[in-house]
């Protein structure tokens, strides 16, 4: 009977000739990218944010992203807590301002891979203006927007993404505004890559995240996630898993889908998939090309942080 140990970067494998099989050891592959001294996290049972983080970490591993150059920037809210659980350079900024913070970070050191990981209210309401202009400028940042249809951290108030007619703490008789169709919105603004998945579609979500790391420019992935505590319970989904089942049931991935068809209405299908994958010069590239052309030798490109 022989025993040997094989290790790779994510998992430790013990090969037992006796059992003629390989078994993984105790460690979850995600742990390497998490601040394990902060786990368990603050998210409620059945919350989908953790699931999206799981897909994100797996995408980081698969895409072999250089971790030392990876920064994750979050705003405020439940999803805003994501950055704090990731064991990378993590920035938990102010409400709605993750994108302009990330813009400063990326432009001041273009070698960094900058991810903005935040919620629907944070990115599209209070931070809506920044979402518009970062996409328009094509700043090279990867945005992951967890959409749970509600402001969850503050107690379930209606958000721009709350589907019309559903109940929120500030819409006790039902919300009577049109919901923002996020993929359509960021497409109009100029994002180079746009996808939407629910937390039921973890594999596809992970694949989209991997693709976005390989993509230059402003990418946007919307993750529809359950919030049983503050959205689900008020809207017939008692537990996270009930909302997940609904996602499974009503999600539709169709051929040649367009973002304008991606509006979310209660009781109707949720359009998922990759909507946009296109090339545009990033802000930095466009600036560099332009100045080279206009200023010639007088142009002195930015060489990164000065000290």
């Amino acid at each position: 009977m022989t025993e040997s140990v094989v290790t790779d970067h994510t998992k430790q494998e013990t090969i037992s000739a006796d059992q003629n099989r390989v078994e993984l050891c105790e460690k979850n592959p995600a742990e390497d990218f998490l601040r394990m001294d902060r786990i368990p996290h603050i998210w409620c049972p059945g919350c989908g944010i953790g699931t999206s983080v799981n897909a994100f970490v797996r995408a980081l591993i698969e895409a072999k992203v250089d971790r030392s150059k990876l920064c994750v920037v979050s705003g405020i809210g439940c999803s805003g807590r994501v950055s704090g659980y990731l064991n990378v350079d993590a920035f938990h900024t102010t409400h709605g301002r993750a994108i302009p913070f990330a813009t400063g970070l990326k432009l001041a050191n273009p070698e960094l891979t900058v991810v903005v990981y935040s919620g629907d209210g944070d990115l599209s309401a209070i931070g809506g203006n920044h979402l518009v202009h970062a996409a328009r400028r094509n700043i090279d940042i990867k945005v992951v927007c967890v959409n749970n249809f509600i402001y969850s951290m503050t107690g379930g108030q209606a958000a721009p993404t709350t589907p019309m007619g559903t109940i929120a703490s500030t819409a006790p008789y039902g919300f009577c505004e049109y919901a923002l169709n996020l993929p359509h919105f960021v497409e109009a603004c100029g994002a180079t890559y746009i996808a939407r998945w629910t937390t039921f579609h973890v594999r596809q979500l992970q694949k989209s995240m991997q693709e976005s790391f390989a993509k230059k420019g402003f990418t946007f992935i919307e993750v529809i996630a359950p919030c049983p505590t503050l959205y689900g319970r008020r809207n017939q989904y008692r537990q996270g898993v009930d909302e997940m089942k609904m996602f499974k049931e009503v999600s539709r991935r169709e051929k040649d889908i367009e973002t304008r068809d991606a509006e979310i209405k209660p009781g109707e299908k949720i359009v998922i998939g990759k909507f946009v994958d296109r090339e545009r010069e990033t802000w930095l590239e466009s600036m560099q090309h332009h100045y080279k052309e206009v200023l010639g030798d007088a142009y002195y490109p930015y060489t990164g942080a000065m000290i």
């Binding site: 920037v73 920035f91 900024t93 102010t94 301002r97 994108i99 302009p100 913070f101 990330a102 813009t103 400063g104 970070l105 990326k106 432009l107 001041a108 050191n109 960094l112 203006n129 920044h130 202009h133 990164g304 942080a305 000065m306 000290i307």
Partner: peptide
């Protein structure tokens, strides 16, 4: 946006 972008840039070393 300007006032938070400078914090981002500062953390990138600028």
């Amino acid at each position: 946006a300007s006032s938070i972008a400078i914090s981002g840039a500062s953390w990138a070393g600028a």
